[in-house]
Computed example of a mutant assay.
Amino acid sequence: MESMLNKLKSTVTKVTADVTSAVMGNPVTREFEVGRHIASGGPGLCWRIYNGTKKSTKQEVAVFVFDKKMIDKYQKFDKDQIIDSLKRGVQQLTRLRHPRLLTVQHPLEESRDCLAFCTEPVFASLSNVMGQWDNLPSPVPKDIKEYKLYDVETKYGLLQISEGLVFLHSGVKMVHGNLCLENIILNKSGAWKIMGFDYSISSINPSDAEPKYTCKEWEPSLPALCLPNPEYLAPEYILSVSCDSASDMYSLGVVMHAVFNEGKPVCQVNKHDIFKSFSRQLDQVRSRRRVRDHVKMLLSVTPNVRPDADQMTKIPFFDDVGAMTLQYFDSLFQRDNLQKSQFFKGLPKVLPKLPKVNIHISISSYI
């Protein structure tokens, strides 16, 4: 018993020391208590995610922390590039407000040792639940290690991401520029949210009907944290140094492929030999017979062949009674009492088609 207590005390001490070293001196700790390290997310899974609470209200939050020790190996110029990129991503996310984007509760704060900001409560990144465990605590939390994505949950999650892209492309005329598993966050209620706006591009003529975007040439000499994830990047970024909203749709296609293939994208890409990697990737897409038609269209080398985000929300793939029920729950607060009554009367017929985890996640917010 004494040995077990000592082991527990040692574990608690290690976790506390880990949190203290990461956020000591950061202004975010003036208003928020930082708890257990639970997940990782964002570009390259570089953000550690902690449980947290607001001191004044006891409101639950997630605290995202980037420990600057992670980039000690780089020269000053590269360090500055990485920090500037991460700052830009969080600042952009903070300015944007939409139910399909991760909600920032406290803006970015910087100290000598780290960057930190707070969001709505978080479970993990999609990358974590698909088996990518970089920057997670050791041992990996059991709830992440044993997490199972149900088919209806995956469908509704992908629909939520598509709806987020509708807002970005049509609402604010913006290209995300780095849509990938690590930039999709599952919040505490199970909703899928977009983050990671480090490489987002706004239209240079937002008032015009036809937005226009300019992107930078790929620079393989830059650190990986200064570049979008090449495995999810549309070919036009590399082949013609161009992009538009269809480029995000290609990335969505790779995300869809990955979530149904144990987290693996279409092809492994070498950022230093990206032209060769893209040629191989495109050949693999063409040769895969099991890729669904809508994913094949998203992964087309020709941007104007890809369906747009609004069209994606209407494909038969999402015409699923379970996914539609979860979607209705999300919009329940907008319904009048008669609509709510009719919905709940029909709910018993639908419940057997939903896995228990989804019933709990979705209904708990309305009871």
Rank of each mutant, 00 (worst) to 15 (best):
V15L: 14
G190V: 06
A17Q: 11
S221V: 14
E153N: 12
H169E: 04
D330K: 12
V269Y: 00
E217I: 13
L5M: 06
Q281N: 08
L101S: 03
I315E: 09
G177N: 01
N183T: 05
D72L: 10
L233E: 08
V152F: 00
K69M: 10
T20I: 08
V63L: 15
R48F: 02
C243M: 14
F317P: 02
V65T: 02
F32P: 06
H98E: 12
V34E: 03
N178I: 05
K314Q: 12
F197I: 08
N205K: 12
S245V: 11
L8Q: 13
M4Q: 13
K212D: 10
M4H: 12
L225I: 06
K264C: 06
F333I: 13
K73V: 15
V15T: 14
T11H: 13
S21D: 14
V140R: 04
H98K: 11
L5F: 02
T154Y: 01
G42C: 09
Y147I: 06
L347V: 14
M4N: 11
G177A: 05
A224G: 08
T94C: 10
S125R: 04
G322C: 07
E182M: 00
N229I: 00
G346C: 11
K212A: 10
I161L: 05
S207G: 15
S203W: 00
S242Q: 05
K68D: 07
S287N: 12
V152G: 00
C215N: 11
D310R: 15
I363E: 08
D330P: 05
H106Q: 10
Q91A: 06
Y232N: 10
P137Y: 07
D319F: 09
V122R: 01
T13R: 14
N51E: 13
P206W: 05
N128R: 07
F66K: 00
F318I: 12
C118D: 02
D143M: 13
E219F: 08
D72C: 08
S240I: 07
D293C: 11
L299H: 00
D72F: 10
S240T: 12
G164D: 07
L181S: 05
L299D: 00
S21H: 11
F317V: 06
I49P: 03
L179V: 07
E110K: 08
G164T: 05
C114G: 02
D80H: 05
V357F: 04
D143N: 15
Q160A: 02
A323G: 06
K216Q: 15
L351G: 03
K145M: 11
F275D: 15
C267T: 10
K79V: 03
T103L: 15
Y232Q: 05
Y156I: 15
G253E: 05
I238K: 03
Q334Y: 11
F318L: 14
V61W: 04
Q339T: 14
D198P: 01
L252H: 01
A258K: 00
A258T: 02
Y213T: 10
I38C: 03
G190R: 02
D72G: 02
N6I: 09
V12C: 09
V34N: 03
S365K: 15
S127A: 11
K87L: 05
S162H: 04
S341T: 09
A246T: 08
S40D: 07
V175G: 08
I82V: 14
S300E: 01
T103I: 13
H98C: 12
E182T: 08
R30P: 00
S331V: 15
R280Q: 12
E236H: 04
S10Q: 15
R95Q: 10
F260G: 13
V255N: 01
R95K: 12
L186V: 12
